[in-house]
């Protein structure tokens, strides 16, 4: 028996999900961060973040079409993490590293938190 493994299938699917997001197709939730709004797919959010997984597996909350995050969350940090969820690329700017890491802690994205820790350690003189 043989099996064909398409090695770039996961990234091709993610690319298409990101195109759907950028065109606002089948996005089903608005994330409010301070006054900024981000449209996204619940399934992608919950696949990447422990916080969103908890929210959307709760039968009382899974049908919400808008979620407000803690006002302490920095929209710029959230935007970078949302971009990461849809592209697998995490932009770590030194000026934003603390807000990215704190947002990742809040969103329960443990692997990203570890990566931020390593980035901070490696840039420490």
């Amino acid at each position: 028996d043989s099996c064909i493994q398409f090695t770039r299938h996961a990234s091709d699917v993610l690319l298409n999900l990101n195109r759907l997001r950028s065109r606002d197709i089948l996005t089903d939730v608005t994330i409010l961060v301070n006054r900024q709004q981000f449209r996204a797919h619940k399934t992608v959010l919950m696949a990447c973040s422990g916080l969103f997984y908890t929210i959307f597996t709760d039968s009382h909350k899974c049908n919400l079409n808008a979620i407000s995050l803690d006002p302490k969350v920095d929209p710029e940090g959230f935007a970078i993490l949302l971009e990461f969820m849809y592209t697998s690329r995490l932009t770590l700017k030194e000026s934003l590293i603390m807000s990215i890491m704190n947002t990742a802690i809040y969103l329960q994205m443990d692997h990203v938190v570890d990566t931020c820790h390593r980035f901070i350690k490696s840039s420490d003189p």
């Binding site: 028996d1 099996c3 064909i4 493994q5 091709d12």
Partner: peptide, 21 residues
């Protein structure tokens, strides 16, 4: 998949949704 001959296909796996129609 143990014992199955796995062939790697490195080309695109699905159509690409355009940025805009």
């Amino acid at each position: 998949y143990e014992g199955v001959n796995t062939i790697k296909e490195r080309g695109r796996s699905i159509h690409e949704i355009p940025r805009q129609d």
